[in-house]
């Protein structure tokens, strides 16, 4: 299994997100490969949920397109299986806890191990409830990636100390979706996390331009971009792979310019 933390060792990471089966099976497989070719360090693959309370309109709409394509959990596993024929890019799933719970924590984590899925991002699993899945995920080498928000305050210490894989730093209050302004204490938030853990911290929610990506990479260990890429998939449909590979390269460059600055 790919060790997520190691990915961040010598560089700033770029972590793009797409929704599985949006708009269809084959395009999703091609999109994963395109993201890998464009230079993604980790691909975050969303398993659609009927009621995605942490997500904004763009990702909600992508979930609906995936449902229209007939997505279910088995299909998502098959998409990863097909992508694994072409790429070893590290992949994490983003989904809501009920999807994992209904499949069975044990069975789900076992599948993750089989498919070389390194971690799970579960927006509705706060620190308080991690205990019911973490011991099982550990058994299969799957990291349960915690989220830290601008409102986390005194909770940061315990969350950071328990973190594995990477810490998903939420850039602002609210839900996913493109933004032009972020929580202004974001750099301090990352510093606070760093006080308690060596696990890398990547920033996500709302980032959609190379400039924003560069800035966020300069104050953290990596950048997560979701809605902006999902929006490309929506516009380009079956032609999305070429377009998102191009976008990924642009972000890659922006993030790498920070890497180089750091080396100098």
């Amino acid at each position: 299994m790919t060790n997520l933390s190691n990915i961040f060792k010598n560089k700033k990471a770029f972590i793009p997100f797409i929704v599985a089966d949006d708009p269809d099976f084959d395009t999703t497989v091609a999109n994963i490969v395109a993201l890998a070719n464009g230079g993604a360090d980790i691909v975050e693959l969303g398993i659609p949920f009927s009621d995605p309370v942490a997500d904004g309109k763009v990702i909600q709409a992508a979930d609906l397109r995936a449902f229209a394509a007939g997505v279910d959990t088995e299909t998502v596993f098959k998409i990863v299986e097909a992508a694994r024929q072409q790429t070893d890019v590290p992949i994490v799933f983003l989904t809501y806890l009920n999807i994992v719970f209904k499949h069975g924590y044990e069975a789900f984590c076992k599948q993750c191990q089989r498919l070389n899925i390194s971690g799970l991002v579960i927006p509705d699993l706060p620190y308080e409830s991690r205990g019911e899945i973490v011991p099982i995920a550990d058994k299969y080498g799957v990291d349960i990636i915690p989220l830290v928000a601008p409102t986390s305050g005194h909770r940061i210490e315990k969350i950071a100390k328990a973190a594995s894989g990477f810490v998903y730093v939420v850039s602002s209050e609210g839900i996913t979706g493109e933004r032009n302004s972020f929580y202004n204490g974001i750099a301090d938030l990352v510093k606070e996390i760093k006080k308690y853990t060596d696990v890398p911290a990547a920033i996500g929610f709302g980032i959609h331009t190379p400039e924003q990506a560069k800035h966020m990479a300069s104050i953290s260990d990596g950048v997560i971009i979701g809605s902006a890429i999902v929006d490309i998939v929506k516009k380009e449909k079956q032609n999305a792979p070429a377009a998102i590979e191009k976008f990924t390269k642009e972000i890659r460059e922006a993030v790498d310019s920070v890497n180089q600055a750091k080396v100098r």
Binding site: L97, P123, S152, R155, E173
Partner: peptide
């Protein structure tokens, strides 16, 4: 409690 971190505090 199963809710996004943003609301936990």
């Amino acid at each position: 409690q199963y809710i996004p971190e943003t609301l936990m505090t």
